[in-house]
C-alpha cells in the first residue's frame, strides 16, 4: 500500500508540474526557436502553439491576401518526430505537402487573389522504443514582407 501511494504521489507531482510548465515552454519555444525560422520575413505577432503527442493532428484556418508574400513556419520540439503539414484550399486541393519536400519546416508563397486556406498538421508516430508516445510543443507562425 505504501509503495502504491508513493507511486501515485510521484506520478501526480510529475503530471501537475508538466501541465503547469508545458504551456510556458511552448511560449519560449515559439519565440526563441520557431520565430527565428521566419527571418527575413516579419512575424505577424499571432501566437498559435500547443503541446501535441505523437499521432495527434491539428488544423489552422487563415485568410491570406493577394499581393503579400508569406512564410509559414511549423516546428516541433526536439522530442517529436518531424512534423508533417499540408496546405489545403477551399476546394480541398492539397497545394503543398512538406512530406514531398524533405519535411521542410517553412514554405514561402504569394497569392494572385486572396484565399482562405487550411493548414493541416500531424505529429507522426516515431520509431522510438519508448513505452509512452512522445509529447512536445508545436508552433505555427506566419511572416510577411512589407
Amino acid at each position: 500500500m505504501k509503495n502504491f501511494l508513493r507511486a501515485i504521489l510521484v506520478v501526480s507531482i510529475f503530471l501537475s508540474i508538466n501541465q503547469i510548465s508545458g504551456h510556458a515552454q511552448c511560449k519560449g519555444f515559439a519565440k526563441k526557436i520557431c520565430k527565428l525560422e521566419l527571418i527575413p520575413y516579419i512575424h505577424d505577432g499571432n501566437y498559435h502553439a500547443a503541446i501535441l503527442t505523437e499521432g495527434e493532428e491539428a488544423e489552422l484556418y487563415k485568410t491570406f491576401f493577394s499581393g503579400q508574400e508569406y512564410r509559414i513556419s511549423i516546428c516541433g520540439s526536439d522530442a517529436l518526430p518531424e512534423i508533417e503539414f499540408q496546405i489545403i484550399d477551399a476546394y480541398k486541393n492539397v497545394l503543398y505537402d512538406n512530406k514531398e519536400n524533405n519535411f521542410a519546416r517553412t514554405w514561402d508563397f504569394t497569392l494572385e487573389s486572396s484565399q482562405q486556406l487550411k493548414i493541416a498538421l500531424k505529429v507522426p508516430v516515431g520509431n522510438s522504443e519508448s513505452e509512452y508516445p512522445a509529447s512536445g510543443c508545436v508552433a505555427i507562425m506566419f511572416g510577411f514582407k512589407e
Binding site: I42, D44, G45, H48, A58, E59, Y61, I88
Partner: peptide
C-alpha cells in the same frame, strides 16, 4: 463555408485572424 466542412472536433483547431500589424500592412 466549404473549407470548414470537415472540421474534426477531436483535433486541435486554431483560427488565425489578421494581426494588428498585418491589418495595418
Amino acid at each position: 463555408d466549404d473549407i470548414f466542412d470537415d472540421i474534426d472536433k477531436a483535433k486541435k483547431i486554431f483560427y488565425s485572424l489578421p494581426s494588428p500589424l498585418e491589418t495595418a500592412m
